[in-house]
Design a binder for these strands. Sequence first.
DNA 1: CACGAGGGTTGGAACGATCAAGCGGGGAGG
DNA 2: CCTCCCCGCTTGATCGTTCCAACCCTCGTG
Lengths: 342, 342
Amino acid sequence: MTIRYPVAPPTLADVAERAGVSRQTVSNAINNPDLLRADTLTRVQEAIDELGYSPNRAARNLRTRASHLIGLKFSPAQEGTANAAMDRFVHSLVETAGGAGYHILLFAVGEEDDEALRGYDDLLRSTAVDAFIVTDTYLGNPQATWLRQRRAPFVAFGRPWDDDAADHPWVDVDGAAGVDLATTHLLDRGHERIAWIGWRKDSRIGEDRRSGWTRAMHGRHLSTTGLASRTEDTVSSGREASAVLLDEASPSAFVCASDTLAMGVLHTLRDRGLQPGQDISVVGFDDSQVAQVIQPGLTSVRQPLEEVAVEVVRALEGLLGHPPVVSPGVLLTPTLAVRETG
Amino acid sequence: MTIRYPVAPPTLADVAERAGVSRQTVSNAINNPDLLRADTLTRVQEAIDELGYSPNRAARNLRTRASHLIGLKFSPAQEGTANAAMDRFVHSLVETAGGAGYHILLFAVGEEDDEALRGYDDLLRSTAVDAFIVTDTYLGNPQATWLRQRRAPFVAFGRPWDDDAADHPWVDVDGAAGVDLATTHLLDRGHERIAWIGWRKDSRIGEDRRSGWTRAMHGRHLSTTGLASRTEDTVSSGREASAVLLDEASPSAFVCASDTLAMGVLHTLRDRGLQPGQDISVVGFDDSQVAQVIQPGLTSVRQPLEEVAVEVVRALEGLLGHPPVVSPGVLLTPTLAVRETG
DNA sequence: CACGAGGGTTGGAACGATCAAGCGGGGAGG
DNA sequence: CCTCCCCGCTTGATCGTTCCAACCCTCGTG
């Protein structure tokens, strides 16, 4: 079977010849239209349309030393959990970035830290991407630290936490505010003994979300002692933690650091014949597909990922502008998707 | 705040000078190492390592007329459904493609067909990508048709169905075999009245999956009349369809075209106080996160997306090789993830 | 009328890699 | 001894775009 490849696409010179002007004039027609006289511009435009011309990306990239590509390490949702933020975020990002003239380039890196850094380094040294978006910014994230040392432009989805050396733009969602929202929602419905199931203490994100719970509880002068549990982000951990809490603290509601943990709570309730939403309320975090399709529906904190994408792209445009501008961190507020469990 | 950008990265000429050879020799050291004498090669390698050199992508792309980028239109999981295949597929794809020297470039296109085509066209004309991966290959998909006419290299995840004009490589999962597997599994467990809930008749994928059910049933000389329902791919549709089927055909098990529909069945069972897996068995399709985290776990057909990615990349390498080779279609067999509901 | 200013346009050079051709030296074959 | 070829490497040209400096023409001004 033979393949006939498309004929060589038209170049700037082809357009110039057709329009009866020079290459530079065509280039200006595309990049600085206001430098041309109106009649020349329309003549060039016609030639461009007739030939179906688009500037060759490689040549432009070579000359301008910019690729208009943004690197993103793609991490899929873990199997067996309810985490699905990446998918939604990436989609919003692709759309928003596209509007600003950027494309998203995905790459995978090895598990080891140094392998991961090599992945970033290769893309950077070969000038394949103009900047990166970093999504997992736990404290001491070697990628963020390394990129900063390398003076490579990047925007983080996630705060630098207490890393004072950080001077890069970031966008994050206020987890504490989200959990506060969820807890207050339960308080308003009359709950007083509201338990927390979160992640281990060394997770800054987990501790941040937890602080929203204590803040809301203490705001109503309610005690939180004995009502909290910290564990792994798995369904079975949530199940065990909630069983213990039910036995030892008899809460009337649970707020969880993730939908995965909330699913564990629902399992425990099912084991004990308790009706979620009726006997015990449950709220998760992330508004995953799971929260949306199960019965009864799981009330959950929803991150404004579309807005996050918009802010990330805005910061990126600043970084890559002339002169570059480092925009300050942006903290967005999540909403609460109320369903039957809470 | 001032930003100090990294110094200009080293070029081929820098390496050449340091190693005391010509540019071309360095180029050969990278692309055709066997052309060099061993000692020259090591000398060049040392120079490359010392300078931390990586070839400039733009320059290489310009000269070789190839970008080593593969375009993929990124469609996120729909809210309110359990579909999550894209996420897993993209991850496998990024990893496999990376191993073959390709990166994945994501793009979004407008809703309208002509807008979508313009999205593809722009990337193609500007030589931003070498090829595309097309994932939604319903019959008469304008993108596939257009790409074929344009003689643009692309690989489809999904059969061309009865489009005889198709002569592009494709990889697909044998939905019929998957549903056959699921149905046979239920038959082996003693079920005889097994119902089907699928999509509307104009969905070729849906009809394919359905044929696996009829094949398995007829193989055991069991009737399928009155046991099938075709509807939209939403939880509520699955719920209603299963309620009707329970009333009118009293099946002992359901096989569904998607996990979303299976969730609808579970809702109906819950409404009626029936125990999934005990009273009525349920099997879904896609092995989504939802299937994995709910209680009881949803038995589901799992697509071998990692293998799909491998085959897609293999086909891509053929298409972009010299000379280009159009590999024949590949049909992979799914597996069954058995859990409590079936 | 000469001159300067400035918008519009021009050709040459550069970006950093690969391709194609060429070059000297050494060994095999006539 | 000459020719031919192959090996290992070098040199010049080229991909398509944008940057740079110079150019031409027109117009307003002294």
